[in-house]
Design a protein around this nucleic acid. Sequence first.
DNA 1: CGTTTCGTTGATAGTACTCAAGTGGTGTGG
DNA 2: CCACACCACTTGAGTACTATCAACGAAACG
Lengths: 244, 244
Amino acid sequence: MDTLDNTLRPPVSQHLSQRPAQRSGEPDVALREHATPVRARRRQRLALDHAPTESVYVVRSGLLGVEAAAPGKPRQLLELYYPGDIIRRSLVPDLPGLTLTALNVTEVWRLPARSFDTLIASTPEQMAQAQRRLSEQHARSTLHASIIGALSGDERFASLLVELGLRLGTPGVAGLSFDVPLSRTDIADYLALNPDTLSRITSRFKARGLLQHARTGHTVLPQWDALLAATPVSATLTALHGPH
Amino acid sequence: MDTLDNTLRPPVSQHLSQRPAQRSGEPDVALREHATPVRARRRQRLALDHAPTESVYVVRSGLLGVEAAAPGKPRQLLELYYPGDIIRRSLVPDLPGLTLTALNVTEVWRLPARSFDTLIASTPEQMAQAQRRLSEQHARSTLHASIIGALSGDERFASLLVELGLRLGTPGVAGLSFDVPLSRTDIADYLALNPDTLSRITSRFKARGLLQHARTGHTVLPQWDALLAATPVSATLTALHGPH
DNA sequence: CGTTTCGTTGATAGTACTCAAGTGGTGTGG
DNA sequence: CCACACCACTTGAGTACTATCAACGAAACG
């Protein structure tokens, strides 16, 4: 089942709105001219080659993720990519079973790594913006490691809900709502949890009134403040995923 | 007890040697001129300020790490920095209790972020090298998240031993040997394990003959191949921490 | 309307955590 | 030189959390 592509919705509130792929102006017109627009459906894989044929993807809409699966280990969702993010092989470790997958209906710009590097280097603004974005992605990666390493299952799930709420949520009468672009398995693999355990956690959250969701994947977070209180890293998440 | 600073030793073998801070030539003469050399003793903290007074550190020798400690949670060692690595606030998430600490006797170059950015941008080679290094650090961060999230305690510890062996180890008659620059607590916090649990793991490793260590912190890995077999990510570790 | 897939839930097992006691090395002072 | 305290590490026993396995139910698909 395809879930809706939330990233195309216009922002609704100032504090809990989605952001456009690029914040300030459009310094990526040069990229647009040299890049190939690629549309990917849910579960579609994108090539993640090494240096000679390395591609750079710039996310335009939707959600992607890099997966790994060591033999004998459950699949892992290592990183999530939102609109504006930069994806390339050299940023990702050489793990067994590494794939770049669209979790959603997505649109990306693809261009050869060489072209990307020279284009980016052509103007200082583009360079600065790309570096800022890459720094942000690095920080998010570290934050994710921190969440996986230090928090309990409930706290991890609350952290993900906060992240998705900040990224995709639109305020409504019943609370912040959005369509979850991830399947149950995706979420479990992202949070380093067993799907069964995750199911217990979601049941607990629903019982506590922190979460309502229809089977279509549409989710409502009725108590945003309580959700923020349910994870020790809510401030960090807001800084990295909230509006700038 | 201070442990030795291994990073100044010359390489001994081709496959398991240490690397100099910079691999190819010395493209960082410009940095050297504008940077302030800073020496730090074990446990010394270095400022990790935000944008207005942000500093960039380039590691010259020794080992550093960023720590975080959410209230009510054990301390976490989020990332390790080796010679050649670039450290700056914007690369790290805004976690509670965030500090940059020297785990070792270290020497770093410190310079204002603005100066660093302009210096790096002055020549394409420096820019390329800095980006390569930052990509590598990003990949290491993701790999660490993968290790923390998917592997058992034993596998995590084996992964760390492989990492340290590749970075610091010198071949000897009894096996690969090096001085561990991390305390027991450091290791536990880095691997997201309890110190007690870590102690059990090391005992198990010693019993299996994978590890010998004197209380001075000097460690010998008698069976490198068996150690590689003890972690599913040995190939990835070798790619990121081994000689290039 | 069967078949498949996904999510839920219960029972059980495994792993790591917590608390506490014990051990060995180290440094200090008598 | 020994007694003592201190610290880091080890180890045991009990607990908590998550994983595993299996059964069940509901929705989706042919």
